[in-house]
Amino acid sequence: MSIPDVEAIERAGLSAWPGIEEKWDGSWVRRASGGYTKRANSTQCFDPDDFEDADLRIISASTWMIIRKTKPVFRITPLAAPEVSATLDESGWQTIDLSHIYAMDLGDHEADAEAHFLSVTDPKFVAAQQQLQSYDDTTLTGFTNLMAVLKVPATGVVLTRDGQAVASGLMAIADGIVITGNVITDAQRRRQGLAKSMMNSGLAWAKKQGAKFAALNVQGDNPAAIALYSELGYTHQYDYHYRIPGAPK
C-alpha cells in the first residue's frame, strides 16, 4: 500500500489533533484552543491555488485568533500557496520550528506487558502527562480541554516500571492513519528503550483498531526522536514550519 499523500495526512491530523474552535475560509482553516500547542492554534492552507486576497485573509485570520486570546500563527506545509508565504515575508513574519512529517505502513508491533491503554481524559493518563511533561496548571488545563474535544478513536498510552509512569504518548486514529503525539519519557530514564516500548505498544493498539498507516510530526532539532522513529520504520515524507509576526520595529 502507498503511504497517504500530504493532504490525507494533514486532514487526518486535523481530526487527531483538533482545534477547540475551527473556522474555514475557503481552503484555509483557522484553529484556536486556548494556546495549547501551535498546531491547534494556527491557520493553514490546504490548496496551493487558493491565494486570492491573501493579505486581507491573513489579517482576518490573525484578528480572529487575537479575539480568542491566541497569538497569530500560520502553519506552512507543502499545501500552502507560495503567495501566502510571500505575503507573510512582505509583512515581516518570522519563520520558526522547522519540523518533519514521518509516516509508514503499519506493520506488526508488540505491546509491552506494562503498557496501559487509557481514555485520553482518564485522570491516570492526564497525571502521567503532567508529571512527565512538567506541565504547569495553565498548560495542563489546555491539554485536558483539547483532549475533551477529541472525537476519533484514541488512547493514552502509559508505560510503567515498578508502578511508576516512565513513558507516555497519545495515539489517535483518523481515516485509517494513527497519528502519534505528546511522546515523552522520564528525563531520568532516557536511553533505556522506554520510548520505543511505549511506541510499539501504541502502534500494536492502533493495528488492532484497524489502522493501516502511522504518521507523526517531529521537530527538526530533535535527532534522538528522529532516530527512534526511523528505527521503528517511519520514513520522512515532507517538511513544515510555522510563521509568527515579527518583532515591532
Score class of each variant (00 low, 15 high):
T95G: 12
F125H: 11
A115K: 03
Q133T: 13
D47R: 07
M104H: 06
K71F: 00
K71S: 00
P123K: 02
L56D: 13
R39A: 01
P153R: 04
D50T: 07
A54T: 09
P72H: 13
H100M: 14
F51Q: 14
V158W: 13
G34E: 04
V152S: 12
N41L: 05
P48K: 03
A148W: 01
Y36L: 13
T155G: 05
M65A: 12
N41P: 07
V158K: 06
P72D: 09
T138P: 00
Q94I: 14
T87S: 15
K151I: 10
V157R: 05
A61M: 10
L98T: 07
E52L: 05
A81H: 08
P123W: 05
A80E: 03
E90I: 01
S60Q: 11
D55Y: 10
S134G: 10
T95A: 09
R68G: 12
A127Q: 10
R57K: 04
F74T: 04
Y135K: 12
D162S: 08
K124F: 12
D136M: 11
S99A: 13
L118T: 00
M147A: 02
C45N: 15
F46V: 06
T37E: 04
V120G: 05
F117M: 06
H116S: 13
N41H: 05
A61D: 03
S42H: 11
A154G: 03
S119T: 01
M65S: 10
G156Y: 07
Q44R: 14
V120Q: 06
D50V: 13
T37L: 15
I66Y: 09
A61T: 03
M65P: 06
K71R: 12
Y36V: 09
A81C: 09
G142Q: 06
F46K: 15
G34L: 10
L79V: 01
R161F: 03
S33E: 00
A115N: 00
T70A: 03
V120N: 02
W64E: 13
M104C: 10
S85D: 10
D137P: 09
D97K: 11
D47C: 12
A103C: 07
E52T: 02
S99T: 14
T121M: 12
A32I: 04
E90M: 10
L118R: 02
D137Y: 14
A111Y: 08
I58C: 13
A54P: 00
F46H: 14
A111Q: 02
F74V: 03
T138W: 04
K151R: 14
V84N: 09
T87R: 15
I96D: 11
D108R: 03
V120K: 04
D112T: 05
L98I: 13
Y102A: 06
G92C: 06
V84R: 11
T63A: 13
G35E: 04
Y36F: 10
P48L: 00
L140Y: 13
D105N: 11
M104W: 04
A61C: 14
D89F: 15
D50H: 11
L88G: 13
T70N: 10
K71A: 00
G107S: 05
T155E: 00
D50G: 03
V158E: 07
A103R: 05
P78E: 04
M65R: 01
M65Y: 08
G142S: 12
E83M: 08
